[in-house]
């Protein structure tokens, strides 16, 4: 019986013949490892790019968003648990090979393809092959990932990517172990590798009541981002809704999200947003130099845009992002 060791993510699953990795979607067949979800998305949607969330990439455009079943983390409060914590036999899957993804994205008028919802790490080969074709077709490739990936596969994927949103769920190994059965450092390494590769990065932190909503949790995240990733990296504090194994908790209070935003901005982060909620100022982009309202958003809808060639129309400060 020939085992295989998967090297895609830090779990390094050792998989016996007939078995699968922890992610549920990579299987050992006759001593070779196969993806069970290549070309088989269970979620396909055309979404506003702001929903991904990307607030500094092609505002008001739409993104052709795909995901397969499975995930290599097991977050107790996963907001997409109905697909991430399922094997592909239990999801309703389409037959959509990479070339069809690109064709449908172009037909829908999308300017990007987003590999999202569950985690593109576990449908790596599908993400990779699709992103090669998408780039050739003039589409942007957007990754939304929990960042739990080994260095080598990430390095291979980076040349195809334009932007990535990485979930930094907490700032301790203990949190990652209890919440997600994972560890922290690979996620931080992922953020730094993406930055080094010149990919536009935004960060999302799902604020879960009683788990990671203390001032010190928010401060630790903000300080790390400012110190190692950069004060101009947008951070989205996202509202948790009771799901999966955390239905005993309430949704994140709006005050908590407002407090998180205030703390992060006090730590020097320039672009801090509140997500999964319509929150007025927390959805807007302001010039870090003169405070001018640059982009007003009502939820995912852009209602005002005062950027001119990616700069504040009043003072001319360049605002980082991919604006066209």
């Amino acid at each position: 019986m020939q085992h295989v060791e998967c090297l895609l993510c830090p779990r390094h699953c050792r998989i016996p013949e007939g078995g699968r990795g922890d992610c549920r979607v990579r299987a050992n067949v006759d001593g070779k490892l196969f993806s069970l979800v290549y070309g088989k998305p269970c979620a396909v949607h055309v979404d506003p790019i702001e929903k991904k969330p990307f607030f500094h990439v092609l505002p008001t455009s739409t993104s052709f968003s795909i995901a397969t079943a499975g995930c290599n983390l097991h977050c107790k409060g996963c907001q997409n648990w109905t697909i991430s914590q399922r094997p592909p036999e239990e999801t309703d899957n389409l037959d959509l090979p990479p070339e069809a993804v690109v064709r449908e994205a172009l037909r829908a008028g999308c300017r990007s393809i987003a590999y999202t919802y569950s985690d593109p790490v576990i449908f790596y080969e599908y993400t990779f092959d699709t992103s090669v074709l998408a780039r050739q077709a003039g589409l942007l490739n957007l990754l939304h990932t929990a960042g739990y990936i080994e260095k080598a596969p990430l390095a291979d994927l980076c040349p195809e990517l334009h932007a990535a949103n990485v979930d930094i769920k907490g700032m301790t190994d203990d949190f990652y172990h209890r919440m997600s059965r994972g560890t922290l450092q690979p996620v931080l390494d992922c953020v730094l590798a993406l930055k080094k590769a010149g990919i536009w990065v935004e960060i999302t932190n799902l604020v879960v009541p009683t788990w990671n909503d203390r001032d010190e949790d928010i401060r630790a995240l903000a300080r790390w981002v400012r110190t190692y990733a950069g004060k101009d990296v947008p951070v989205h504090f996202s509202r948790f809704w009771p799901m999966h194994e955390l239905t005993n908790l309430p949704p994140t209070p709006e005050d908590t999200l407002a407090r998180a935003r205030k703390i992060a901005m006090a730590e020097g982060l320039q672009y801090v947003y509140i997500g999964n909620i319509q929150s007025g100022n927390g959805n807007n982009t302001y010039c870090p130099d003169d405070g001018q309202l640059l982009i007003a958003r009502d939820g995912y809808e852009v209602t005002e845009n005062h950027l001119v060639d990616g700069k504040c129309e009043r003072c001319g400060t360049a605002i980082p992002g991919i604006w066209k």
């Binding site: 085992h3 998967c6 196969f34 993806s35």
Partner: peptide
């Protein structure tokens, strides 16, 4: 059954950890 896509980034392993 549609053909499966061979994964990248894996290696053969001994059954003993």
């Amino acid at each position: 059954k549609p053909p499966l896509k061979e994964a990248r980034f894996y290696r053969r392993a001994d059954h003993l950890a």
